[in-house]
């Protein structure tokens, strides 16, 4: 942790009603780096991301983004500051076209030259250009996942929070999404926090991975241990 961390979480406690799901988690992440977060079902991985974007309020602790304390900011404000969020299950707008889905964050920011930005996105996700006028709800799961990522990339976020991007997607597309994330992190200097249970997906990202259990970070696995899938599986299954 240090001043150059783009996103820093300090002693966060959060949950629903009176139950705490996240019990004191701290970590930081640098510009254009990738961090994976894993753990069993229901341990609070999604809740952690929701707390960072602000959909779930933190009960104590602080969240810093670009050295600014955003703990009290609303989700809208955090998003405008430059945090992207792709929820689990993707939450595509069924009644909006593909292009409207992608444009939404840009419109809410009154971004100029939307056309240019759209072309950039379409060059990364050609399938979305083909389907630009279809309704979001008519896309397949893998296409919706790409759409959800594209929708968050349109405003060049500094940090992108991804919740289980590989869920329900065929292996070949999983690896192409992993590749795209890797390229985006390098080219656009975007940092990623990726909640993921798919081991081969994590190993393709070659990043560190935190394991969450009982609302705390129970262990950290370094990218070296993910260098091959078998090793990674071993490391994770020991932890899970």
């Amino acid at each position: 942790m240090g001043l150059n961390n783009i996103l820093e979480i300090k002693n966060i406690i959060s949950g629903y009603g009176t139950t705490n799901v996240i019990n004191n988690i701290s970590f930081g992440i640098n510009e254009s780096s990738i961090l994976a977060i894993s753990g069993r079902n229901g341990v609070g991985k999604s809740t952690l991301l929701k707390t960072i974007i602000g959909i779930v309020e933190s009960k104590s602790g602080n969240i810093f983004f670009m050295n600014k304390n955003i703990t009290k900011n609303r989700p809208t404000e955090r998003s405008i500051l430059g945090i992207g969020y792709v929820p689990q299950g993707r939450d595509i707008f069924n009644s909006l076209t593909v292009e409207e889905n992608i444009s939404l964050p840009a419109i809410s920011r009154r971004m100029k030259n939307l056309k240019n930005e759209l072309e950039k996105i379409y060059s990364v996700f050609p399938i979305l250009k083909e389907k630009r006028n279809d309704l979001g709800g008519s896309l397949s799961g893998g296409q919706q996942q790409q759409l959800a990522i594209a929708r968050s990339l349109i405003f060049n976020p500094k940090v992108l929070l991804l919740d289980e991007p590989s869920e329900g997607i065929q292996p070949s597309i999983v690896s192409s999404i992993a590749e795209k994330i890797h390229n985006i992190a390098i080219e656009l200097k975007t940092a990623f926090v990726i909640v993921e249970q798919n081991i081969s997906f994590i190993s393709k990202l070659s990043c560190d991975c935190f394991i969450i259990d009982k609302g705390v970070i129970s262990s950290k696995i370094s990218s070296k241990d993910f260098s091959d899938v078998d090793k990674a599986r071993k490391a994770l299954s020991l932890e899970l």
């Binding site: 809208t76 405008i80 707008f93 009644s95 939404l104 964050p105 809410s108 920011r109």
Partner: peptide, 24 residues
């Protein structure tokens, strides 16, 4: 219109809209 896109997104998924920067 652009406002229409924001409005229809907000009707369908207000929480997700806010997480994408829409001032719901």
């Amino acid at each position: 219109s652009r406002f229409g896109t924001l409005a229809r997104a907000t009707i369908e998924k207000p929480i997700t809209s806010s997480a994408l920067g829409v001032d719901v």
